[in-house]
Amino acid sequence: MTEAIVEIRGLSFSYAARTILNDINLTIYRNDLVCLVGPNGGGKTTLIKLILGLLAPDSGSIQVFGLSPCQAIGRIGYVPQHASYDPKFPISALDVVLLGRLRKTLFFRHGQKDRERALAALDAVRMSDLATRPFAALSGGQRQRVLIARALAGDGTMLILDEPTASIDQEATAHLYDLLRSFSGNLTIIMVTHDLGVVSSLFTRVACVNRRAAIHPTSEFSGKMLAEMYGDDSRLIRHDHCCEGGHA
């Protein structure tokens, strides 16, 4: 865990006149399992979009795999919070995963290797028997897994998930966490979540993001930190109860 994969120094970002992120310093190492928590509007998604290179910082620097985010494009598997697809889009699960194999060339065709990698990615999320199923006919949890497979198919070594549990039920959430647990040790994972109960059981470090960011080992994560961040620690208690029940 010595090689820094993401290195953020003195980063600030604002939309119009509103400062979203201010003087962020954050280092994420190889095979780190980092969870981003913080209140809505605290800048979690913005931070992720900066790491992905979808947004450019006002000041400060970001290095991803030692490169600028724009140069590192394609090396990160990303699972978005709200996929913008048409719910009736006529496409099979396998074809969605194949989109994750696209490369920046003028003439692109999926080859045999792309198919093999896409099927392997579907296998990794235990969806290979539904590969030919229309994406629109899948359940919310299954679609989520297909999108994770799409992110894995690009052969990146880092996976970023933005609130993956927001639109799926409890059972699918439990499956998702099992899946992420099975990736640990092989992938660097950054996940945005409001589900604080899972923080200690799955992740090694927690980054609290609310205009500023502070990163802690999960073992030090406490109600006091949350109280500072959210201004009310009753959320921790409530989430803990619900999620411990769910994971028992």
């Binding site: 979808l54 990303y78 978005p80 996929a83 074809d95 696209l102 920046k104």
Partner: peptide, 23 residues
């Protein structure tokens, strides 16, 4: 025919297409 995979990616999810380095 030439740009079909790119158009498909663009129509399905343009943000993801951008992350794959597509213009």
């Amino acid at each position: 025919a030439f740009f079909h995979p790119q158009f498909l990616a663009l129509c399905f999810d343009d943000e993801f297409a951008r992350l794959r380095g597509l213009p």
